[in-house]
Design a protein around this nucleic acid. Structure first.
Lengths: 201, 201
DNA sequence: TGTACATCAGTGAACGCGCGTTCACTGATGTAC
DNA sequence: TGTACATCAGTGAACGCGCGTTCACTGATGTAC
C-alpha cells in the first residue's frame, strides 16, 4: 500500500479516471490535460498511454463511467417507490437533477460531446439504457408497453424537462426566476402534469 | 473596399466576432483560438488586442451578441401571434429551439459559462431580458402581472422544457427516443399543459 | 522449489506545435490653427 | 487650403509555456518446466 513501492499497482487506470473526473469538475470538460491528470496520479506524463489510446479516449472513459453511475442512481431512486407510482417517476427525475448538481462537470461532459465523439457506440448504448429507466417507469405508470409511442413520447417530455432544469440549475440561471424551487415538489408536479395529459386516454 | 487597402477598415471588431462565431460553431466553444480568429480576419495575431482585452473578453462579446439575437428572435416570434394567445407562447419556444439548432455552438457558449465568466453583469442582464420575453407572454396568457410568482413559475417550467429539448436535440439524443417529434405540435402541447395546470385557478 | 524468460507497467527525456500576450514600431486618419 | 501634430489601428517578431505524444529503456511480476 506504500504509494511509491507499488510499481505496478494495477490501479492506475482507475486512479487516472478519478483524477480526470476531478479535473473535469474543476476546470470543465475541456480544461483537463493528460499531463495534469498524470501529475495528480503521481505518475509520468507518458504513463496514461499505457491504459488509454489518446486524450479523447480518456474522456470517453470518464463519460462512460459517469453514465453508469447516473443510471444506477436513477434505478435506485425508482426502486425506493412502488412500481407504477408517480413517486417512482419523480424520484428518477430528482436523481437526475441531483447528479447534475453533484457533478456538473461530468454531467456536461456526458451531454456535451465536447470533442465530437458522438459516435462512440458504447456511450450511445449507455445513454439508451439511462433513457430506458425513464421509459420503464412511465410504462409501469401508464400500464402500457415500453415500446408504445405514447409512452416514449411522455418519457421524452419528462426527460426534456428534467434535463433543462438540470442545466439551468448548474449554469446558475435558476436565480433569474424569482420563484424559488423545491425540486421534489416541482418534479412531482411536472410528472403528474405530463403523465396526465393523455390525449384520448 | 479593397481588402488590404483598408488599413483602418474600422470593421475589425465585427469581423473578429463573426470569425469567432464561425469557429465556435465548427470547433465548439473551447476550440477557438485568438490566433485562428485573427487569421480568418486576415489580420496579425496581435490585432485583436486592440479591440478586446483578452481571449475571454472576445468570447463574452460573442455570447452577448448571440443573446441579443436570441432575444430578438423570440420577440419577433411572439409578435407574430395575438397577445395572450397560446400560439405566442409556443412560438417563443420554437424560436428558442430554432436558435439552438441553427447555432448550436453559440447556444452552448451562452449557456455553458465555459470559462467561468458567469459574473459578467451585462451577460446576466441580457439573460434576464430573454427570460423576460417568456414571462411577459405567460403573464399575458394568464392575465396576471409579470411579477406574480405563479407566472414566474410557469415561465420557468416552459423554459426548462424548451431548454432541455434544445440541448437534447443538438446533442443528438433525440434519436434515442423512438417517437419522432414535430416541434410545433410538441411545443403547443407542452405550453398548453403547463399553462393549464393551475393549482387553485 | 528454482530458474529462464516473456510480458507488463512504469520512467524520463525529447520532439514539435500552436497558443496568448507583449512590445516597439509605423503608416493612415482626424483635427486645430 | 495647407501644415503640424496627436491619435488610432494595424504590423511582425519574439517570449515563454504547457501540451500531446513518441521512444528507447528498465525493473517488477507471472508463468512454464
Amino acid at each position: 500500500m506504500t504509494p511509491k513501492a507499488a510499481y505496478h499497482h494495477g490501479d492506475l487506470r482507475a486512479q487516472l479516471i478519478e483524477a480526470v473526473r476531478d479535473l473535469v469538475e474543476t476546470h470543465g470538460p475541456d480544461g483537463f490535460s493528460v499531463a495534469e491528470a498524470a501529475r495528480r496520479a503521481g505518475v509520468s506524463s507518458a504513463a496514461p498511454y499505457k491504459h488509454f489510446k489518446d486524450r479523447p479516449d480518456i474522456l470517453r472513459a470518464v463519460a462512460g463511467e459517469g453514465m453508469d453511475r447516473l443510471r444506477v442512481a436513477m434505478e435506485q431512486a425508482a426502486a425506493a417507490h412502488p412500481v407504477g407510482s408517480l413517486e417512482a417517476v419523480a424520484a428518477i427525475g430528482l436523481a437526475y437533477v441531483d447528479f447534475a448538481r453533484t457533478e456538473p462537470g461530468v454531467f456536461r461532459l456526458v451531454f456535451g460531446l465536447t470533442e465530437g465523439h458522438e459516435n462512440a457506440p458504447d456511450l450511445q448504448e449507455k445513454g439508451e439504457c439511462c433513457f430506458g429507466v425513464v421509459v420503464k417507469a412511465v410504462a409501469d405508470r401508464l400500464k402500457r408497453p415500453t415500446n408504445d409511442p405514447l409512452v416514449q413520447r411522455r418519457a421524452y417530455m419528462l426527460w426534456s424537462f428534467v434535463h433543462g432544469h438540470s442545466f439551468l440549475h448548474i449554469d446558475g440561471k435558476t436565480r433569474v426566476s424569482a420563484a424559488r424551487i423545491d425540486d421534489w415538489l416541482y418534479l412531482t408536479e411536472i410528472s403528474k402534469g405530463v403523465l396526465a395529459t393523455l390525449p384520448g386516454a
